[in-house]
């Protein structure tokens, strides 16, 4: 394997960890209450703008913007749950698409109204420059985002599988009525899930903004990646999203390098449909 190909694979892995980072919030919601949030990409976008605002208003880098974005998007998640999601869950599955698609347009163009149509970037000195390790180049901002991506997804995974609050949340997702009989308040757990998902998404946005461009429509691009990552990995499986993210990242990078960038999406989508053909519940989803 040539050195360049090693670099391509490493870049792909890093990209995959970032995909996992901004998909983990989506899969949490999806698994817990079988709700697809079509506004997910726009949650990420608002996290990104939080970082831009923190930088322009306070001159602060990710150390300031990440916690602020986590709180801001967590609040947005909880508010969306109480004002909208709680109600549309009573309707058919289509109501989710309707409601969250409307929310997506509303958020996207509210951001457009406030921040304008322009593309914004953060100075790349905020995190640090790129460095070379064993002949492979790494960029500071991506390494930070990838590392946080790993930490956040693993933390969410352990919280769901190893803690009391996690098992309560899972109990609600299995059977809300039974959980209620056991003294768990389903709405509180679901709101908590939206808050956690929002926080993870906010962190993702604030970190992505350090090496990506920020614009009101950026969420559209990211949302499709997140949808594919999450269903590839299996709904509700945070670990599945991580594995799927890494696979997609590497497949994308290698196919873009070897076949050509236009066809990288084709390769990813074909792979995705194939995975569903053999495993209709995704890589790590429950049947």
């Amino acid at each position: 394997m040539s050195m360049t190909l090693v670099q391509v694979v490493v870049s792909g892995l890093l990209l995959g960890a970032i995909y996992a980072l901004f998909s983990s919030g989506l899969t949490l919601i999806w698994g817990m209450m079988n709700v697809v949030n079509f506004a997910h990409g726009d949650f990420v976008m608002l996290g990104m703008y939080t970082a831009v605002v923190v930088w322009t208003a306070l001159g602060g880098g990710p150390w300031a913007s990440v916690p602020i974005a986590a709180i801001a998007i967590a609040s947005l998640g909880i508010a969306s749950y109480f004002l909208l999601v709680r109600h549309i869950m009573r309707g058919p599955m289509l109501a989710q698409i309707l409601g969250t698609f409307g929310l997506a347009l509303f958020l996207r163009y509210s951001a457009f109204n406030v921040f304008g149509a322009n593309f914004r970037t953060l100075p790349d000195t905020l995190v640090g420059h790129s460095f070379v390790l064993g002949g492979i180049r790494f960029e500071g901002a991506r390494v930070l985002a990838g590392a946080v991506g790993l930490i956040v997804t693993l933390a969410l995974h352990f919280m769901l599988t190893r803690t009391a609050i996690g098992s309560r949340m899972l109990a609600v997702s299995e059977d809300a009525t039974a959980a209620q009989l056991m003294g768990i308040r389903p709405q509180r757990m679901q709101a908590l899930a939206w808050g956690l998902a929002g926080a993870a998404t906010g962190i993702a946005g604030a970190l992505i903004a350090t090496f990506f461009y920020t614009s009101p429509t950026v969420g559209e691009t990211l949302a499709i990646v997140a949808f594919v990552t999450v269903s590839f990995g299996g709904f509700g499986s945070v670990l599945g999203a991580l594995v799927a993210g890494l696979i997609i990242g590497v497949v994308e990078s290698v196919s873009a390098f070897e076949i050509g960038p236009v066809y990288k999406d084709v390769v990813v989508y074909v792979l995705f449909v194939l995975v569903l053909w053999f495993r209709p519940q995704g890589l790590m989803g429950k049947t």
Binding site: L83, L84, H87, I88, R90, G91, P92, A95, L98, G99, F101, G102, L103, A104, L105, F106, L107, R108, Y109, S110, F112, N113, A117, P216
Partner: peptide, 23 residues
């Protein structure tokens, strides 16, 4: 006006309908 208001209104109305008439 170029201020994105079209979709703010459009999105809000869809949200309101979904909220009150999910079916």
């Amino acid at each position: 006006q170029g201020a994105g208001l079209t979709f703010v209104v459009y999105g809000a109305i869809i949200v309101i309908i979904a909220r009150f008439l999910p079916s």
